[in-house]
Simulated assay, not measured.
Amino acid sequence: MDWWLIVAAVTAGLYGALAGTLVPHALYRLSVEPGEAWRASAPCGHALGGWAGRARCAACGGRYGPGALWPAAATAAACAATAAAVGVRPELVVWLLAVPVGVLLAGVDRAVRRLPDVLTLPLAAGTAALLGVAATLPGAAGSWPGALLGGAALGGAYLLLFLAHPAGMGFGDVKLAAGLGCALGWYGWGALICGALAGLLPASVYGAWLMLTRRAGRGATMALGPFLVAGAWLGVLAGGWAVRP
């Protein structure tokens, strides 16, 4: 590995660690059941403001949500690995901005089986727009039309799955798939298929295991978001590595 790639990976990892420490506050506020308003106060009763930061009350110092260790570690590792696989290319900035959002979405879905529009829709629109900018810069290794087609393809595939079996999948998964498909489509159909399978197959195995061990019934729902996010990340790594010189 070249020295500049090591520097990029270390820098991205440090950025990821910092970004990950800002996730817990938003994770706490957004982890509510469908139809409920976002949390505006901590369990201690003090009002909460803003969206980024640690899950500790500014007034009394009490902890009201998840710690920063796992979000910081997950975001740092994902950002460092992404930089190492993709290299110093314009699209790397897009991936580094998307990783903390993906970690946040995975955390919210795992907590309350929900993928909020306030995250999934900006992720999809922002990824598409920023990749359009990246495509105009020297050194870009992907295709913006391919990204748009990937978003439409993966989003459309999950829409069909949702329509076929609404009880087993939420519409938030469809919106998330559109954004993730946009990222995967940037590197072509191979990355798209790889990322889609890397998310769907482990989720199917996990769901089957839950039923076999009777930890969930046939009509139960599971958090699909973490699998989709992880699979898309692996697909981006594979796509970025494949196009490196």
Rank of each mutant, 00 (worst) to 15 (best):
A17S: 04
A183N: 06
P122A: 14
A68N: 11
L224I: 05
A177S: 10
V108P: 04
G142Y: 00
A73Q: 03
G185P: 05
Y28F: 15
G142L: 00
V94H: 05
L192D: 07
G235C: 11
A216Y: 06
G49H: 13
A12I: 01
A77W: 00
P66D: 13
A198P: 08
A238S: 12
L180A: 06
A81T: 10
G190R: 09
G239F: 06
W70A: 12
R63T: 12
R113Q: 14
R56A: 15
K175M: 06
G150A: 09
R56M: 12
G231V: 03
L201I: 14
G20Q: 01
V10Y: 11
Y158T: 06
V108H: 03
V229A: 03
G231F: 00
G107N: 04
A74F: 11
A52N: 14
A196G: 15
A242R: 10
W95P: 00
W4V: 13
E91F: 00
R113K: 14
A80Y: 04
G172H: 06
S41A: 15
L176I: 04
G219W: 13
T127K: 01
G239Q: 07
D117F: 05
M211K: 13
A208W: 11
D2T: 14
L200R: 06
A129I: 02
G195R: 01
L137G: 06
S204F: 15
P116Q: 03
G20W: 04
W4T: 15
A124M: 08
L119S: 02
I193T: 09
L160S: 10
F227P: 00
A37V: 11
L237H: 02
V88F: 07
V101W: 02
W241Y: 08
P226W: 11
A128R: 02
L148H: 11
L212E: 14
A83H: 06
G146L: 05
C44F: 12
A12C: 08
G62V: 10
L224V: 02
